[in-house]
Design a protein around this nucleic acid. Structure first.
Lengths: 256, 256
DNA sequence: CGCGTGGTTGAGTCATCTCAATTACTGTGG
DNA sequence: CCACAGTAATTGAGATGACTCAACCACGCG
């Protein structure tokens, strides 16, 4: 894992400097979009591939009856639509949750890049496998855990993601999601999520407000949530090298 | 998509004959395992990669409290553990649901193969992206749909998968899952699943029994389930070319 | 200062679960 | 070919987690 120091793109991929340079050349154009913008829309094909540089975006799908399920969270370094190379219409939308910067490239440029640089192709594979693993953990979360645990689990995931990239202090990170978005991600109701959060606060596990999440008892929160770092497959280590997390949870994913 | 006619492996991948040949050389050893065998166990690393040749297997994860969630279904042609190349401990188990034949290779052999044959590497990427898309649809299924729809949706998915590979007649396919397994896959109870199935039968949408699923009204079932083929990304076309499915659902997705 | 979005509360309802018992299969050994 | 054991399917009735509806509050922004 490598944090490219000078460029716009920080890539959630294990990759060499040289390859990263090549990737840069292709993803040279950067654009900024406001919150609630669609980076891609379910069913609408596009020739662009983009990598999130900063901000936070959400993958979601709509049901016929108007409700929606958030099926994934995009953090800086994540690739938005690799699948567009192989499948024509995207099966889900991607919407920014905050202002975002994205590095954009044309599909054919990326395809060509993969041709020239097998290592990048392999890194894309690793990325995609990690995405699949995370999606499966979500299935688990939504399918098996009681509501209050789902909420706690999602907090853990987001905290672990963000921990290494931007945090005020070692127990705090930015948290731009609304309770409604948490509800859509956990398959619960806003009302229920609200009460679950209150409970976590009352028990002094977290504070949450003003776009800021503080975790006062990481161990306790993980225990509550049944959270285990390992499924992220090192994803939470992107950016600056992992700091506190390791110490606080000595057993977790020590491997990766 | 190509059905390799003479070999043991039928690959759920878009790939040329020549590459398939190379793949064969690597996955030359075939083994047969009984039902309820573990092809891989959560947390236990392995140096093997395998492709399912025949039968049906389930990916699942366990919660601390002993319950489990099935997070994916493996059909002939699917690769069991691509992720072992990049991540050390598997985050989920794979268990056979029927007797299965699997073609096995060592991890390093496969890595070498990917090196030699970029097209195979790319096919693996496509496979992995499709897996991720399917997992996200599962999140949607479990998170947003009411129980009876989840069951119907799962039936649709399995039927679509199986439809093209082995079916008695155009509306019937083998269906080796127990109600308990359906429950674990949908995040519901056996009791609830049982009642949901009865309802589908009562309404003459399906018959289900003796390991056989007949769909009497594919359109109706899809409507009931909110099912849309597209997320499978052609997965259901593996093996013999797609036959009935297209005709029976000409509009597919036109709706949603 | 007013409006909009996001957060919080309370009370009643329903979908889904639990528990527990009964029946139907499937395969195996006598 | 039957008896039996074990697994899978079915049924009923009561309990509860999560939802719905509907109101109210707080803040940030123009």
């Amino acid at each position: 894992m490598l944090n490219f120091p000078r460029g716009p793109v920080r890539l959630a991929l294990p990759i060499s400097d040289e390859d990263l340079e090549a990737l840069f050349d292709v993803f040279s154009r950067a654009i900024v979009v406001g919150k609630h913008a669609f980076l891609r829309r379910e069913g609408e094909r596009s020739d662009l591939v983009s990598i999130l540089e900063s901000g936070l975006a959400l993958r979601h799908k709509a049901t016929r009856d108007g409700s929606r399920q958030i099926v994934g969270i995009l953090m800086p370094g994540h690739i938005c639509d690799l699948s567009s190379h192989f499948f024509d219409d995207p099966d889900h939308s991607i919407e920014t949750a905050t202002d975002c910067a994205v590095a954009v490239a044309r599909k054919d440029e990326v395809l060509d890049l993969m041709e020239r640089r097998p290592a990048i192709s392999r890194a894309f594979l690793a990325r995609s496998l990690a995405d699949a693993a995370i999606a499966r953990e979500w299935v688990m979360n939504v399918g098996q855990r009681p509501g209050y645990q789902r909420v706690a689990h999602l907090l853990c995931e987001i905290f672990a993601y963000q921990q290494s990239m931007d945090f005020a202090d070692e127990a705090t990170c930015t948290f731009p999601l609304t309770q409604e978005q948490l509800a859509d991600a956990t398959g619960l109701t806003v009302v229920y999520v609200n009460r679950a959060l209150q409970d976590l606060r009352r028990r002094k596990l977290i504070t949450l407000g003003q776009n800021l999440l503080s975790v006062h008892d990481w161990r306790g929160l993980c225990a509550e949530a049944g959270f285990n770092l390992s499924y992220l497959h090192g994803d939470e280590q992107i950016g600056t090298p992992m700091r506190q997390l390791q110490d606080q949870t000595p057993l977790e994913g020590a491997s990766v």
